[in-house]
Simulated assay, not measured.
Amino acid sequence: MKAQSLLLQTMLAGAGVLLAASAQATILTFDLDPGVPNYGDIPGSYGDNVNAASDAVGSYLVGNGYTPNVTTDYRTWQISTDTVAYNNLDFWATGYGDLINVAFSVTSSNHFAEITLVPEPGWAIRLNSFDVGGYYLADHPSSQVRILDGTSNTILIDYSPVTILGTGGTHSTFTPGLTHEGPLSIRFGYNDWNVGIDNINFDQVAVVPEPETYAMLLAGLGLVGFMARRRKQNV
């Protein structure tokens, strides 16, 4: 029985699909150390391997649990060259609609912001929702908001063009509900640093076998059990 259990664990480790029941969620609120001022850099480690309500760089809200197997990357891209201009985003406290504490592009024209969620091997990302607001308390029409494969930059969901709300203390909420095995990127603020992001709600999801793979595993375990019985009979 122990041998069968060990075999199952080994085969599961090499398999490949997503198990929703194992999801754990974190919400990035960009509530950073009080020493970070407006225009200050979002710490590159904010959101890395979250396993508590706060760490050395900031605090988080908890969805279904923490995400200790996920790290975050922050980048500002230059549009004209399609290259990374800065390996960070900036912080701002208020004025992006009714959002408090947001991340936005380091510079304004010819740039956009990107946040990438990177799972460790054996885990995937489920992006539940995030908020985006317009500065200063203004709507920003014809904006771009995209979700991409963080490895190939293939667009998975494109909300563009979209009006980002901010007038009268409002904001826009996006609910992709997308599960993706591998890095997952959110791009926003295309040519407009007056668009900021907040409350990124994501899960880490364990990668396990597909139903067909389970059937093969069970068949394999049945064969192992049969061979074990034969061996016992022949002793």
Score class of each variant (00 low, 15 high):
residue 131 D to A: 13
residue 175 T to M: 10
residue 145 V to P: 01
residue 167 T to W: 08
residue 211 P to G: 08
residue 165 L to N: 15
residue 13 A to H: 09
residue 28 L to M: 05
residue 225 G to Q: 13
residue 219 A to S: 06
residue 38 N to D: 07
residue 203 D to W: 09
residue 55 D to T: 02
residue 72 T to P: 02
residue 213 T to I: 08
residue 231 R to V: 13
residue 114 E to A: 15
residue 105 S to F: 03
residue 183 P to L: 03
residue 214 Y to Q: 11
residue 163 T to Q: 06
residue 97 G to C: 13
residue 141 P to Q: 08
residue 119 P to Q: 08
residue 123 W to E: 04
residue 166 G to M: 14
residue 189 G to L: 15
residue 115 I to L: 15
residue 94 T to F: 13
residue 64 N to S: 08
residue 223 L to Q: 02
residue 66 Y to I: 01
residue 136 Y to F: 08
residue 106 V to K: 04
residue 222 G to A: 13
residue 232 K to Q: 12
residue 36 V to L: 00
residue 227 M to S: 03
residue 22 S to N: 02
residue 142 S to L: 14
residue 64 N to W: 01
residue 166 G to C: 13
residue 206 A to W: 02
residue 151 T to R: 07
residue 204 Q to I: 09
residue 189 G to Y: 05
residue 231 R to A: 13
residue 33 D to E: 00
residue 140 H to R: 14
residue 125 I to K: 14
residue 199 N to W: 10
residue 180 H to G: 08
residue 75 R to Y: 06
residue 23 A to V: 01
residue 99 L to F: 01
residue 126 R to Y: 05
residue 87 N to K: 11
residue 174 F to Q: 07
residue 200 I to D: 07
residue 209 P to V: 01
residue 207 V to K: 08
residue 188 F to R: 03
residue 30 F to V: 01
residue 176 P to L: 14
residue 24 Q to A: 06
residue 89 L to P: 12
residue 161 P to M: 07
residue 191 N to Y: 07
residue 67 T to A: 03
residue 83 T to A: 14
residue 2 K to C: 02
residue 100 I to M: 04
residue 134 G to C: 10
residue 71 T to Y: 04
residue 106 V to Y: 02
residue 74 Y to Q: 02
residue 104 F to T: 12
residue 170 T to D: 06
residue 136 Y to I: 13
residue 34 P to R: 00
residue 109 S to G: 08
residue 22 S to H: 05
residue 11 M to P: 00
residue 150 G to C: 09
residue 199 N to F: 08
residue 154 T to I: 10
residue 223 L to W: 03
residue 187 R to N: 07
residue 54 S to G: 04
